[in-house]
Design a protein around this nucleic acid. Sequence first.
DNA 1: GCCGTTTTCGGCCCGACTGTTTTCAGTCG
Length: 538
Amino acid sequence: MNNRQLAKTLQLIGNLMDLHEENPFKSRSYSSAYRVVRNWPEDLSNLDLKELMEIQGVGKTIANDIYKLAQNGTTEELSRLKSITPSGIIDLLSMKGLGPKKLLLLWKDLGIETPGELLYACQENRLIELKGFGLKTQKNLLDQVQYFISSQGKNLFARVEELSERIIDWFHERYSEEDHSLCGAVRRKDLIIDKVEILTTSMLDPDKLLNELKTEIDDSQIETLDIRIYNCEPENFYSKLFELTGDQEFLNGLSYTEEEYHGVYSEDEIFEDLQIPFVPSDLRYGDLYRKTEIHDLVTTEDVKGVIHAHSTYSDGVNSLKEMAVAAKALSYEYLLITDHSKSAFYANGLVEERLEMQWREIDTLNQMESGFKIYKGIESDILSDGSLDYDLEILKEFDVIIASIHSNLKMNMDKATNRLIKAIENPYTRILGHPTGRLLLARPGYPIDYIKVIDACIANNVVIELNANPQRLDIEYKFISMVLDKGGLISINPDAHSIKGIEDIKYGVMAARKGGLYTSECLSCFNKEKFESWMAQK
DNA sequence: GCCGTTTTCGGCCCGACTGTTTTCAGTCG
């Protein structure tokens, strides 16, 4: 468990105690431990009990809890609380705006124990009769519960990627004489995965295979994953693989019939016969492949710079120097450090004096280094009225400003679009950060008028970010071709909050390829010289 | 449960924001 997961679990324990009206001071201790653990700079799962107890806010019991959680993923206390709470109630605790007190009312007064029951009660207008509830709260919960129900059973690609690889490796090791491959959404690298599909020529009973798989692969996630195993004769492997990889629209566009290709030795043969250039598996959806020069699409090797990263100056885990050393070691040519701006108090945003400190440190580090370069950026909060949160005197000192919305996310399309456009028109804005604020499977973004926002970016020479965090992947890749057609640039940005976060660039590349992004139109693929001349443009 | 001692138990409780109120309760980070 990482610190974030540990913190979430402690928070859950506290919330469950409140839900059962246990000692409120006890639950408060868990809540405060949640806050401490969440922001702790080093990995707590490696510490021993004595070290854990030295943390302010963590005593004997919670130190024990953390230790147990790191070892077993649960504690006696957590198991006890879970055993007296319906699982649907625990699901409901994850709704934003629904804490223990309100949930208890729903549970005891309305008898609601599952998300489905909450949905029904909202539609029946039954929440507003409860004390402390009103129309707005009811509407908010209705939206959230609908979203929750529609994302059930789905996973981010990044969360199933490693396990999928382990599963297919297991097949190769266990039945090395046979052919096996991932297929379906995982092989297409869709952003959201509802099932992991495997094609095999082993001809063994899928249920039996699944049981063996689940006992031999040690990963709790495997229990909740929908895994499908398909068998085929060896001579049909490639035709079947082809058929099970492309989505319906892709296959329909190709007058393809599986039987026709029985006996082929590779997928290349099929493409050759269909008289179209080979389409990599990640692009076998829709008809984008027809309009795209596949060889020019961005790859992870093409990305030359780490644009958009945080350090311990704001809410990052690693220091500025550690981030720079890591970026260089990964063969990137430059790092644009963009900590949070001063109004981001939630993330320890940089007030003016601390900005000066960071700039001095960047200058020093750059002097010690000849090839690699650190640039001075900021992720400036877009305030409610669309303005940025430093004076012009300060704004003009940055090499690059990424403007992003982090607060007051509840907006209608007009308000959100106008707020973004005002920020885009600010003469110092160079990149628009995560344009909709969405968190995949957790929170839909605020609605924006994509055409207006993209037009404004192009008119003001503002690059649009494709935030590479696997939970964001925002801008949605389906709008990339619109940006390119209008002559705009996209930047694949990791939004890294740690050294590890830099690796998220690969997920950004994955989404960018699906959107048809060319290396030449990708800002983060610019080499250092080209990036510097881009910086000088404004 | 944590802390800090008046060492063995009494007092804890950040601060902004929202939506519900009519002066505040609940949630969140």
